[in-house]
Design a protein around this nucleic acid. Structure first.
Lengths: 199, 199, 199, 199
DNA sequence: TTCTAAACGAGACGGTACGTCCTGTCTTACC
DNA sequence: GGTAAGACAGGACGTACCGTCTCGTTTAGAA
């Protein structure tokens, strides 16, 4: 019945695409995930609703892409963690920064919106892992490997597990608001995790 | 006209309350958080919508209470973790059980629904911490304290942090589907966390 | 099922009855027929809803009674039309007064509310005829009979018809707003009706 | 957000419009004005509620239009009263027909519904006067003018007043159910009105 | 350069659900 | 047993969005 035509990507209006992603970001910043509607995005972007439905399968996908677009500009393989030779110090720096970002009320709504989209949509979660999480995790793991080589970290350690023990407590605290995200907390996570994976 | 009236709790119909919570649980089991509507709950429970709006401020609150009601029956101060004397073994048992529960597709939808409600509503999150999480966490901390006394755990360790390093990675893996929740994974979490907090 | 019990009139609270009728009159004056609800009447009167449902079969009946209560005070058989001996002059006086009353914006809403109730409820219409209309009509017919005796009106005239030809055009103009209710209009109605029923 | 938007008439679905008006007519015939709900109209017409709210300002307006649609088909400037040369006979014919129509229980509910809408809504009443009443009244006045020319009616008579004295008593009797609408009654109205306006 | 097919903005459509209001019944506690 | 209060099941209200479906109007690639 529905001709199931796949839209011609070459004809896609970049102008509209950018307007939609920008409008989505603005709306999320103003009102959070739940109150963002396709209708509102279309109106704000000065775009027909069909243009959204044509290119995105769900509201979550639009939201996800509105984040992707942000990091695209900043991307490249250029993510790299500091490597002063002191693993603990370097990780504390990074974890403190992450904690600070989570605690920043301006990032609160967008990050919560992104996570909302991920929780309910396995497909988006997969894209998130591959596109956003993986590059960052690889950068982190590169730093950890460097630490393994310099004898600061157990060379047999499962680096994914190391990352999870470092970051998941932070993430959980933020998501469920079970405690403050202080520098001390970040430091404690680094210290205890490294103690677990001492050579 | 008579705005802001606080309903008279003594007149509340226990029959309707139970019907609403049961209907909510059923609907979540069938279709997940997003598709559960107040309308559907009221219809399934054979209840007027106003009866829901009278006693709950939001859909999330109904969902939360539908979980509370479940654990109320099973509760009492009776939560207690196994204590064989071997902390690692005991924790592995518990974490494996937790992992299995998360992996069980039947629990998937309800737990995801609960977490959805918590993420967006700080007030519910607070109630969750106090009413559902706290008693369980206390039981876990009791086991950890026992381990501190028997010299299996650093007596100066921050027990909240210990719990977070044990459980948060599991929680994050489940939420973002970043990896399988196997027995081996549970064991690895226990082993590495205990290594971090050795006396 | 419903015991269909007829309430014991002797126990009826006159205080509540008056409060209900007064509240009804006030609400009609403020917002017109459509927006008056049993709920609002009960709240304004400081009365339980059941007290209204116990004593009145419908909203229309309450409205009707709220008018009855007004005319009860002014009643008695004391209604009498002026009789100066000049039928035309006397009728013009009365019709001009009626027209003025209809044109008075303060009476607009109550009278419209009353007529609304009557149009939809034959039983109320019957009570209206007997209780409110009949006494007034009798007074008018008494004046007409006096005119028949004095040779100013056809002694065989159907007095109900005379009254209808006098008043119905006024009523219809008011109800459908088909024209202004002026003194000249009242006079014209009297003159033409009397011409039709000359001896 | 985009409040007060005026819908684009050119895009209006004639199909839906007809379905709505038909459903309205059916529901009125079944249950009368008071019990007709927008919800029921939409359901019966197989139409979204918004489609009704988009094009009509009130339930009364829908009801009114459902009548308009009926007479649109039958109209044209083609309304004309019989003119046999005998005014009294012609008017009796017409008034008897009107009385019969009012008395017909099948017309009872629709006409009452229409009048209900008119009584409460001055704007609808204005549309009624212009669109439904005026053409018919003009036809009646044409017949009266013909009678004036042939010397059967006072050439100075106010024809609007003549019509009111002819029809308003009938209308009032029907509305308030104050008496039977017989042929004799129709004849009496004609005879007495004509007596009032003899040349 | 013209043609043509797709994307576009706009927005009407059939629907679902919202949260509020009111109906008429029922229950509780007071008088 | 009448009453004030108000919870209850039910259902309509008018609004917000959903996702689909035309409309004309650009617009960009092929002819």
């Amino acid at each position: 019945m529905t001709t199931d035509r796949t839209p011609d990507r070459s004809r896609r209006s970049e102008r509209s695409r950018q307007a939609i992603l920008a409008a989505t970001r603005e709306l999320i910043a103003e009102s959070g995930y739940a109150k963002v509607s396709i209708e509102a995005i279309a109106a704000r972007a000065g775009v027909g609703k069909q243009t959204i439905y044509r290119w995105w399968p769900s509201k979550g996908a639009v939201i996800f892409d509105s984040f992707l677009a942000l990091s695209e500009s900043a991307d490249g393989a250029g993510i790299e963690l500091p490597d002063t030779g002191d693993l603990a110090a370097d990780l504390k720096l990074v974890l403190r920064a992450t904690a600070a970002e989570f605690a920043d009320p301006e990032f609160e709504r967008p990050i919560r919106a992104l996570n909302s989209a991920l929780i309910h949509d396995p497909e988006l979660a997969a894209r998130y892992r591959e596109t956003l999480a993986h590059p960052v995790d690889e950068a982190k793991k590169a730093r950890l490997r460097s630490a393994q080589e310099s004898g600061q970290l157990d060379p047999t350690a499962d680096l994914d597990l190391v990352l999870e023990m470092l970051y998941a407590p932070l993430f959980q605290r933020w998501l469920l608001r079970t405690g403050p995200l202080t520098d001390e907390y970040a430091d404690a996570l680094v210290e205890n995790t490294l103690r677990a994976f001492r050579p």
